[in-house]
């Protein structure tokens, strides 16, 4: 299907086909899907694709998002240089 070739995670270039295949094979959570494919782990921190990962999981496994955020957020929520994180500007 053509629509499966579409890239979902732009940062890591992960396709919808990759995500569907992984979600089907492992019948996994959004978090496992992220760790297996790297979708959502790129430079933007998953800001662009995180909701789409939840949608893939819902479409494939029927698991709907719940009150707990499925894909955790870790600081820093913006890419920062080691220099800055080390306290120097």
């Amino acid at each position: 299907m053509e629509s499966h070739r579409v890239i979902v995670c732009r940062c890591e270039e992960v396709s919808l086909a990759d995500l569907i295949e992984t979600a089907s094979s492992y019948s996994c959570t959004a978090r496992e899907l992220k760790l297996r494919t790297r979708a959502g782990m790129g430079c933007c921190g998953g800001r662009t694709c995180r909701n789409m990962l939840d949608q893939v999981i819902e479409a494939v496994t029927g698991q709907k998002p719940d009150h707990a955020v499925s894909l955790g957020y870790q600081p820093p929520v913006r890419p920062m240089s080691f220099q800055l994180l080390g306290g120097r500007k």
Partner: peptide, 11 residues
Amino acid sequence: SETPVPIPGWT
């Protein structure tokens, strides 16, 4: 933030 609907070629 905007949640996109991706289309092949959208990069």
